[in-house]
Design a protein around this nucleic acid. Sequence first.
DNA 1: TCTGAAATCTCTCTAGC
DNA 2: GCTAGAGAGATTTCAGA
Lengths: 160, 160
Amino acid sequence: MKEATKEVTLDRHDQRILTLLQQQGRITNNELAEQIGLSPAACWRRVKALEESGVIRRFAALVEPSLVGQPLSALVMVTLVRHHIDNTVEFENRILQYPEVLQCYATTGNADFVLRVVIEDMAAYDRFLNEKLFTLDGISQVSSNFVLRNIKEETAIPIR
Amino acid sequence: MKEATKEVTLDRHDQRILTLLQQQGRITNNELAEQIGLSPAACWRRVKALEESGVIRRFAALVEPSLVGQPLSALVMVTLVRHHIDNTVEFENRILQYPEVLQCYATTGNADFVLRVVIEDMAAYDRFLNEKLFTLDGISQVSSNFVLRNIKEETAIPIR
DNA sequence: TCTGAAATCTCTCTAGC
DNA sequence: GCTAGAGAGATTTCAGA
Protein backbone atom coordinates (compact mmCIF):
# COMPACT_ATOMS: atom_id res chain seq x y z
CA MET A 1 0.00 0.00 0.00
CA LYS A 2 1.29 3.41 -0.96
CA GLU A 3 1.34 6.42 1.28
CA ALA A 4 -1.85 8.46 1.42
CA THR A 5 -1.24 11.56 -0.65
CA LYS A 6 -3.48 13.33 -3.10
CA GLU A 7 -7.05 12.63 -3.97
CA VAL A 8 -7.88 9.91 -6.43
CA THR A 9 -10.51 9.97 -9.14
CA LEU A 10 -13.19 7.39 -8.52
CA ASP A 11 -15.69 6.38 -11.15
CA ARG A 12 -19.08 4.88 -10.44
CA HIS A 13 -17.68 1.35 -10.22
CA ASP A 14 -15.03 2.35 -7.69
CA GLN A 15 -17.62 4.16 -5.63
CA ARG A 16 -19.85 1.12 -5.48
CA ILE A 17 -16.91 -1.13 -4.65
CA LEU A 18 -15.95 1.12 -1.73
CA THR A 19 -19.49 1.36 -0.46
CA LEU A 20 -19.87 -2.41 -0.48
CA LEU A 21 -16.45 -3.20 0.97
CA GLN A 22 -16.98 -0.73 3.79
CA GLN A 23 -20.07 -2.70 4.81
CA GLN A 24 -18.93 -6.21 3.94
CA GLY A 25 -15.18 -6.40 4.12
CA ARG A 26 -15.13 -10.11 3.40
CA ILE A 27 -17.53 -10.30 0.49
CA THR A 28 -16.06 -12.60 -2.15
CA ASN A 29 -14.63 -11.03 -5.24
CA ASN A 30 -17.11 -12.94 -7.39
CA GLU A 31 -20.10 -11.61 -5.51
CA LEU A 32 -18.71 -8.09 -5.42
CA ALA A 33 -18.14 -8.24 -9.16
CA GLU A 34 -21.68 -9.43 -9.76
CA GLN A 35 -23.21 -6.71 -7.59
CA ILE A 36 -21.36 -3.91 -9.34
CA GLY A 37 -21.75 -5.41 -12.81
CA LEU A 38 -18.14 -6.12 -13.72
CA SER A 39 -16.23 -9.31 -14.43
CA PRO A 40 -14.37 -10.80 -11.45
CA ALA A 41 -11.03 -9.96 -13.04
CA ALA A 42 -11.87 -6.31 -13.60
CA CYS A 43 -13.32 -6.00 -10.13
CA TRP A 44 -10.29 -7.62 -8.56
CA ARG A 45 -7.93 -5.22 -10.33
CA ARG A 46 -9.91 -2.24 -9.06
CA VAL A 47 -9.85 -3.46 -5.47
CA LYS A 48 -6.08 -3.93 -5.68
CA ALA A 49 -5.67 -0.44 -7.14
CA LEU A 50 -7.75 1.03 -4.32
CA GLU A 51 -5.54 -0.70 -1.77
CA GLU A 52 -2.39 0.35 -3.61
CA SER A 53 -3.41 4.00 -3.76
CA GLY A 54 -4.20 4.07 -0.05
CA VAL A 55 -7.91 4.75 -0.54
CA ILE A 56 -8.50 1.47 1.27
CA ARG A 57 -6.23 1.82 4.30
CA ARG A 58 -6.72 -1.76 5.38
CA PHE A 59 -9.32 -4.40 6.16
CA ALA A 60 -10.32 -5.08 9.74
CA ALA A 61 -12.57 -7.18 11.92
CA LEU A 62 -14.76 -4.90 14.04
CA VAL A 63 -15.07 -6.23 17.58
CA GLU A 64 -17.85 -5.57 20.08
CA PRO A 65 -16.12 -4.02 23.14
CA SER A 66 -18.75 -5.08 25.67
CA LEU A 67 -18.26 -8.73 24.74
CA VAL A 68 -14.52 -8.69 25.28
CA GLY A 69 -14.52 -7.10 28.70
CA GLN A 70 -14.23 -3.43 27.66
CA PRO A 71 -17.75 -2.07 28.19
CA LEU A 72 -16.82 1.39 29.44
CA SER A 73 -15.85 4.24 27.17
CA ALA A 74 -15.09 7.90 27.70
CA LEU A 75 -14.51 11.02 25.66
CA VAL A 76 -11.66 12.89 27.25
CA MET A 77 -10.95 16.55 26.60
CA VAL A 78 -7.33 17.46 27.25
CA THR A 79 -5.73 20.90 27.37
CA LEU A 80 -1.97 21.39 27.54
CA VAL A 81 -0.36 24.01 29.76
CA ARG A 82 1.37 25.85 26.99
CA HIS A 83 1.22 25.20 23.35
CA HIS A 84 4.87 24.50 23.32
CA ILE A 85 5.87 22.18 20.52
CA ASP A 86 7.73 19.82 22.84
CA ASN A 87 4.69 19.24 24.99
CA THR A 88 2.61 18.51 21.95
CA VAL A 89 5.03 16.09 20.36
CA GLU A 90 5.61 14.25 23.64
CA PHE A 91 1.88 14.07 24.29
CA GLU A 92 1.13 12.65 20.86
CA ASN A 93 3.90 10.08 21.01
CA ARG A 94 2.71 8.78 24.36
CA ILE A 95 -0.91 8.66 23.24
CA LEU A 96 0.09 6.49 20.31
CA GLN A 97 1.46 3.93 22.79
CA TYR A 98 -1.77 3.56 24.76
CA PRO A 99 -4.00 0.86 23.25
CA GLU A 100 -7.06 1.95 25.26
CA VAL A 101 -7.00 5.28 23.38
CA LEU A 102 -8.68 4.36 20.12
CA GLN A 103 -8.97 7.86 18.72
CA CYS A 104 -7.18 11.12 19.37
CA TYR A 105 -7.78 14.39 17.56
CA ALA A 106 -6.24 17.84 17.86
CA THR A 107 -9.21 20.17 17.67
CA THR A 108 -10.31 23.76 17.67
CA GLY A 109 -12.29 24.94 20.69
CA ASN A 110 -11.54 24.87 24.40
CA ALA A 111 -9.70 21.57 24.47
CA ASP A 112 -6.50 20.96 22.55
CA PHE A 113 -7.18 17.23 22.15
CA VAL A 114 -10.18 14.97 22.30
CA LEU A 115 -9.60 11.28 23.05
CA ARG A 116 -11.90 8.30 22.89
CA VAL A 117 -10.89 5.72 25.47
CA VAL A 118 -12.33 2.18 25.63
CA ILE A 119 -11.68 0.37 28.86
CA GLU A 120 -12.72 -2.30 31.35
CA ASP A 121 -14.30 -0.39 34.20
CA MET A 122 -13.96 2.70 36.40
CA ALA A 123 -11.07 1.23 38.34
CA ALA A 124 -9.17 0.69 35.13
CA TYR A 125 -10.06 4.19 33.98
CA ASP A 126 -8.73 5.57 37.24
CA ARG A 127 -5.47 3.72 36.62
CA PHE A 128 -5.37 5.01 33.07
CA LEU A 129 -5.60 8.59 34.34
CA ASN A 130 -3.12 8.22 37.18
CA GLU A 131 -0.56 5.97 35.55
CA LYS A 132 -0.74 7.24 31.99
CA LEU A 133 -2.49 10.52 31.26
CA PHE A 134 -1.50 12.42 34.43
CA THR A 135 2.13 11.34 34.11
CA LEU A 136 2.45 13.36 30.92
CA ASP A 137 4.19 16.70 31.19
CA GLY A 138 2.35 19.88 30.46
CA ILE A 139 -1.22 18.71 30.98
CA SER A 140 -3.36 21.63 32.10
CA GLN A 141 -6.91 20.32 32.12
CA VAL A 142 -8.56 16.93 31.71
CA SER A 143 -12.31 16.56 31.46
CA SER A 144 -13.82 13.06 31.25
CA ASN A 145 -17.21 12.54 29.66
CA PHE A 146 -18.42 8.98 29.97
CA VAL A 147 -20.43 7.34 27.25
CA LEU A 148 -23.90 6.52 28.53
CA ARG A 149 -25.10 5.04 25.29
CA ASN A 150 -23.78 4.32 21.86
CA ILE A 151 -26.22 5.81 19.37
CA LYS A 152 -24.08 5.16 16.31
CA GLU A 153 -20.65 3.81 15.58
CA GLU A 154 -19.91 3.63 11.90
CA THR A 155 -16.65 3.27 10.00
CA ALA A 156 -18.01 3.82 6.50
CA ILE A 157 -17.04 7.14 4.93
CA PRO A 158 -19.84 8.45 2.68
CA ILE A 159 -18.77 8.04 -0.94
CA ARG A 160 -19.97 11.02 -3.03
CA MET B 1 -24.49 -13.46 13.64
CA LYS B 2 -26.33 -13.51 16.94
CA GLU B 3 -27.30 -10.47 18.90
CA ALA B 4 -24.65 -9.01 21.18
CA THR B 5 -25.56 -10.07 24.68
CA LYS B 6 -23.39 -11.28 27.52
CA GLU B 7 -19.67 -11.54 27.68
CA VAL B 8 -17.92 -14.50 26.13
CA THR B 9 -14.97 -16.42 27.51
CA LEU B 10 -11.93 -16.11 25.29
CA ASP B 11 -8.92 -18.33 25.64
CA ARG B 12 -5.45 -17.41 24.48
CA HIS B 13 -6.10 -18.66 20.93
CA ASP B 14 -9.27 -16.56 20.59
CA GLN B 15 -7.45 -13.52 21.90
CA ARG B 16 -4.72 -13.88 19.33
CA ILE B 17 -7.24 -14.47 16.56
CA LEU B 18 -9.06 -11.27 17.48
CA THR B 19 -5.88 -9.25 17.73
CA LEU B 20 -4.75 -10.39 14.30
CA LEU B 21 -8.12 -10.04 12.59
CA GLN B 22 -8.53 -6.53 13.96
CA GLN B 23 -5.29 -5.57 12.20
CA GLN B 24 -5.55 -7.74 9.10
CA GLY B 25 -9.17 -8.43 8.34
CA ARG B 26 -8.39 -10.27 5.14
CA ILE B 27 -5.60 -12.54 6.33
CA THR B 28 -6.23 -16.03 4.96
CA ASN B 29 -7.41 -18.68 7.35
CA ASN B 30 -4.32 -20.73 6.61
CA GLU B 31 -1.96 -17.95 7.58
CA LEU B 32 -4.01 -17.02 10.62
CA ALA B 33 -3.94 -20.66 11.74
CA GLU B 34 -0.20 -20.83 11.28
CA GLN B 35 0.44 -17.65 13.25
CA ILE B 36 -1.63 -18.75 16.23
CA GLY B 37 -0.42 -22.34 16.12
CA LEU B 38 -3.62 -24.19 15.31
CA SER B 39 -4.74 -26.31 12.38
CA PRO B 40 -6.71 -24.41 9.70
CA ALA B 41 -9.91 -26.28 10.55
CA ALA B 42 -9.72 -25.49 14.25
CA CYS B 43 -8.90 -21.88 13.53
CA TRP B 44 -11.76 -21.59 11.06
CA ARG B 45 -14.27 -22.94 13.59
CA ARG B 46 -13.10 -20.39 16.16
CA VAL B 47 -13.47 -17.50 13.73
CA LYS B 48 -16.98 -18.64 12.83
CA ALA B 49 -17.88 -18.95 16.53
CA LEU B 50 -16.57 -15.43 17.17
CA GLU B 51 -18.76 -14.12 14.35
CA GLU B 52 -21.73 -16.15 15.51
CA SER B 53 -21.48 -14.90 19.10
CA GLY B 54 -21.27 -11.29 17.96
CA VAL B 55 -17.75 -10.73 19.30
CA ILE B 56 -16.79 -9.99 15.70
CA ARG B 57 -19.52 -7.55 14.61
CA ARG B 58 -18.44 -7.57 10.99
CA PHE B 59 -15.53 -7.10 8.64
CA ALA B 60 -14.93 -3.80 6.90
CA ALA B 61 -12.63 -1.99 4.53
CA LEU B 62 -11.29 1.14 6.23
CA VAL B 63 -11.22 4.05 3.81
CA GLU B 64 -9.03 7.16 3.96
CA PRO B 65 -11.47 10.13 4.06
CA SER B 66 -9.05 12.67 2.60
CA LEU B 67 -8.63 10.54 -0.53
CA VAL B 68 -12.33 10.28 -1.26
CA GLY B 69 -13.16 13.95 -0.99
CA GLN B 70 -14.08 14.09 2.71
CA PRO B 71 -11.05 15.75 4.33
CA LEU B 72 -12.89 17.80 6.95
CA SER B 73 -14.10 16.41 10.24
CA ALA B 74 -15.69 17.89 13.32
CA LEU B 75 -16.61 16.85 16.83
CA VAL B 76 -20.00 18.32 17.58
CA MET B 77 -21.38 18.74 21.09
CA VAL B 78 -25.16 18.86 21.17
CA THR B 79 -27.45 19.72 24.07
CA LEU B 80 -31.20 19.21 23.92
CA VAL B 81 -33.67 21.75 25.34
CA ARG B 82 -35.31 19.37 27.73
CA HIS B 83 -34.46 15.84 28.43
CA HIS B 84 -37.83 14.80 27.26
CA ILE B 85 -37.89 11.28 25.95
CA ASP B 86 -39.56 12.30 22.66
CA ASN B 87 -36.82 14.76 21.83
CA THR B 88 -34.18 12.18 22.52
CA VAL B 89 -35.76 9.41 20.48
CA GLU B 90 -36.44 11.74 17.55
CA PHE B 91 -32.89 13.09 17.69
CA GLU B 92 -31.36 9.63 17.69
CA ASN B 93 -33.50 8.36 14.85
CA ARG B 94 -32.59 11.31 12.66
CA ILE B 95 -28.90 11.02 13.48
CA LEU B 96 -28.96 7.39 12.34
CA GLN B 97 -30.10 8.60 8.90
CA TYR B 98 -27.20 10.98 8.35
CA PRO B 99 -24.25 9.21 6.73
CA GLU B 100 -21.83 12.05 7.49
CA VAL B 101 -22.31 11.36 11.21
CA LEU B 102 -20.01 8.41 11.76
CA GLN B 103 -20.26 8.29 15.52
CA CYS B 104 -22.77 9.54 18.05
CA TYR B 105 -22.62 9.02 21.80
CA ALA B 106 -24.88 10.07 24.64
CA THR B 107 -22.48 11.26 27.31
CA THR B 108 -22.17 12.64 30.80
CA GLY B 109 -20.97 16.23 31.13
CA ASN B 110 -22.23 19.46 29.63
CA ALA B 111 -23.31 18.08 26.28
CA ASP B 112 -26.00 15.45 25.92
CA PHE B 113 -24.50 14.04 22.72
CA VAL B 114 -21.13 14.08 21.02
CA LEU B 115 -21.03 13.49 17.26
CA ARG B 116 -18.15 12.89 14.90
CA VAL B 117 -18.95 14.26 11.46
CA VAL B 118 -16.84 13.58 8.36
CA ILE B 119 -17.55 15.87 5.45
CA GLU B 120 -16.34 17.52 2.26
CA ASP B 121 -15.65 21.12 3.27
CA MET B 122 -16.96 24.04 5.28
CA ALA B 123 -19.74 24.78 2.81
CA ALA B 124 -20.97 21.23 3.17
CA TYR B 125 -20.69 21.46 6.94
CA ASP B 126 -22.75 24.63 6.87
CA ARG B 127 -25.40 22.78 4.90
CA PHE B 128 -25.25 19.87 7.34
CA LEU B 129 -25.98 22.24 10.22
CA ASN B 130 -28.73 24.22 8.52
CA GLU B 131 -30.47 21.46 6.63
CA LYS B 132 -30.05 18.61 9.06
CA LEU B 133 -28.93 19.34 12.61
CA PHE B 134 -30.78 22.66 13.12
CA THR B 135 -34.00 21.25 11.70
CA LEU B 136 -34.25 18.87 14.63
CA ASP B 137 -36.70 19.80 17.38
CA GLY B 138 -35.48 20.48 20.84
CA ILE B 139 -31.87 21.38 20.12
CA SER B 140 -30.60 23.79 22.75
CA GLN B 141 -26.90 24.17 22.05
CA VAL B 142 -24.52 23.06 19.31
CA SER B 143 -20.78 23.51 19.60
CA SER B 144 -18.55 22.53 16.67
CA ASN B 145 -14.92 21.61 17.24
CA PHE B 146 -13.04 21.04 14.02
CA VAL B 147 -10.34 18.42 13.77
CA LEU B 148 -7.01 20.09 13.08
CA ARG B 149 -5.06 16.88 13.02
CA ASN B 150 -5.67 13.19 13.34
CA ILE B 151 -3.28 11.88 15.97
CA LYS B 152 -4.75 8.41 16.13
CA GLU B 153 -7.68 6.59 14.62
CA GLU B 154 -7.81 2.96 15.62
CA THR B 155 -10.59 0.41 15.47
CA ALA B 156 -8.87 -2.37 17.39
CA ILE B 157 -10.28 -2.96 20.87
CA PRO B 158 -7.50 -4.04 23.27
CA ILE B 159 -7.90 -7.75 24.02
CA ARG B 160 -7.06 -8.48 27.68
C1' DT C 1 -5.90 1.56 -20.94
C1' DC C 2 -9.57 -0.49 -20.12
C1' DT C 3 -12.30 -4.88 -20.54
C1' DG C 4 -13.78 -10.14 -20.10
C1' DA C 5 -12.81 -15.34 -20.63
C1' DA C 6 -10.31 -18.92 -19.31
C1' DA C 7 -6.63 -21.43 -17.02
C1' DT C 8 -4.43 -22.20 -12.86
C1' DC C 9 -3.41 -22.03 -8.28
C1' DT C 10 -4.77 -21.43 -3.49
C1' DC C 11 -7.95 -21.50 0.14
C1' DT C 12 -12.33 -22.52 2.39
C1' DC C 13 -15.14 -25.47 4.51
C1' DT C 14 -17.07 -30.04 5.36
C1' DA C 15 -16.44 -34.78 6.67
C1' DG C 16 -14.42 -38.10 9.34
C1' DC C 17 -11.28 -39.50 13.05
C1' DG D 1 -8.15 -31.14 18.69
C1' DC D 2 -6.31 -33.10 13.78
C1' DT D 3 -5.95 -34.49 8.51
C1' DA D 4 -7.77 -34.85 3.95
C1' DG D 5 -10.07 -33.52 -0.15
C1' DA D 6 -13.91 -31.60 -3.10
C1' DG D 7 -15.48 -27.53 -4.39
C1' DA D 8 -15.17 -22.51 -4.40
C1' DG D 9 -12.70 -18.55 -4.93
C1' DA D 10 -8.45 -15.76 -5.97
C1' DT D 11 -5.16 -14.46 -9.19
C1' DT D 12 -2.75 -14.45 -13.62
C1' DT D 13 -2.58 -14.65 -18.51
C1' DC D 14 -4.11 -13.43 -22.80
C1' DA D 15 -6.71 -11.34 -26.35
C1' DG D 16 -10.12 -7.80 -27.76
C1' DA D 17 -12.45 -3.06 -27.60
